[in-house]
Nucleic acid binder design. Structure first.
Lengths: 211, 211
DNA sequence: ACAAAAATCGACACCGCGTCGATAGTGTAG
DNA sequence: CTACACTATCGACGCGGTGTCGATTTTTGT
């Protein structure tokens, strides 16, 4: 929670930690209530009143912490986005590197499954919220660009085929990944592995022409 | 427009055609107003009042023809779905048949571009409307099943590779197709052709391992 | 011309959103 | 320790869109 008071104290570097303020706790409570609600009910059916109630405050108080319902969702999504950015081992490799590709996919698949509720809510909310749409778009673009770079390197090296432009291939990868992950809501570890296998194979074929 | 009067007259096979009733015309007017509005404004911003106004009736009268806004959109989508079902030349072919695949993709790409407004509205509305979600799901499943059958035949014949299950390949095809088509809103014929080329190549690689 | 069915609309209640202003709590500088 | 600024809470209000009801008018077939 950012307040004007803090700005006044910016210069005073070493000041007694007072622990999280009451407001910080409330904010966390809202986030937690939202995580719970978003994972067990369709996004549209959740009202700001539900969020506030879940955090133990009145509806109007909610607005003190977040301007909209989607702002809460965006905050939740930001965490997921950060975690996602951590598992990009394949992008730094050279050539097909099927093992690393599989590893990277496995990590993101797990992340997706564990946050399925939030992610599917985000998919719903993007229809209504330009804010969220832009946020997700940025994350996605950043991912696609790293993928495109990797592919471009391999195309230059002659390992990847060149009939399709690198950035188009990157988009296709995102498309099949997202489509498959969307079905991963309550999936078992076996189903997870199947998805990863299929995607590893498919991406290898798309980019290198052979698995 | 189906009325109780018609049901009473079912047996009377040869009866004077009276032409479309007033109600039929209104219904058509609503559909037309909807098509216009859906193609020029974001779905969420369009109100039932807009639809009614566009058709020259009051908001309450709208409910005489359609129960909800999404029902109108579903009706519009049904037409597009029918047109789509017509262009499945590749599904009946044997082996890669890149020419027919390209032909089929070109037809659907054109259809998509010409109905971009409606289709992107549908994408938005699926978040809120289970009815529309189910409708689109059925169309999509039917398409995927035909694709899967075609692939299964080619797998049996040995032309298609078998590392990925046929229905999974079909899903992937739908995913990359939809993702690419979504960018086709105001596209030129050249851009259309590029998209078709990329998709032909990608699908060939996914299913047969080589272009 | 007449009755039945089709079609229209105003009035009403509902729900969720967002704002405003009044008020109670909290920490900190003088 | 007190006074002041900032933090936090909430009730009351108005808005806009939805959907229903019942009364009324228009169309339609015979």
């Amino acid at each position: 929670m950012i307040t004007w008071g803090m700005i006044g104290n910016m210069s005073q570097v070493t000041r007694r930690r007072t622990g999280p303020s009451k407001g910080d706790l409330r904010e966390a409570a809202i986030l937690e209530a939202a995580r719970a609600l978003f994972t067990e009910r369709p996004y549209e059916s959740i009202t700001i009143d539900d969020l506030a109630g879940g955090a133990g405050i009145s509806r109007t108080s909610f607005y003190f912490y977040f301007p909209t319902k989607t702002a809460v969702l965006t905050a939740l999504m930001a965490r997921v986005g950060d975690e996602l950015a951590a598992s990009h081992v394949w992008f730094d490799a050279e050539g097909p590197a099927a093992g690393l590709l599989r590893e990277q996919l496995a990590a993101s698949a797990r992340l997706w499954r564990d946050n399925a509720g939030i992610l599917s809510c985000a998919a719903s909310a993007m229809a209504t919220s330009p804010e969220l749409r832009e946020f997700v778009g940025r994350v996605r673009t950043r991912y696609d660009e790293r993928a495109a770079e990797k592919i471009r390197r391999d195309q230059a090296a002659g390992t990847a085929t060149t009939a399709i432009a690198a950035h188009r291939l990157a988009e296709m990868i995102s498309a099949i990944r997202d489509a498959r992950y969307e079905q991963l809501a309550g999936a078992s570890d076996d189903e997870l592995r199947e998805a990863v296998d299929d995607l590893t194979e498919a991406i290898s074929r798309l980019v290198y022409g052979r698995a």
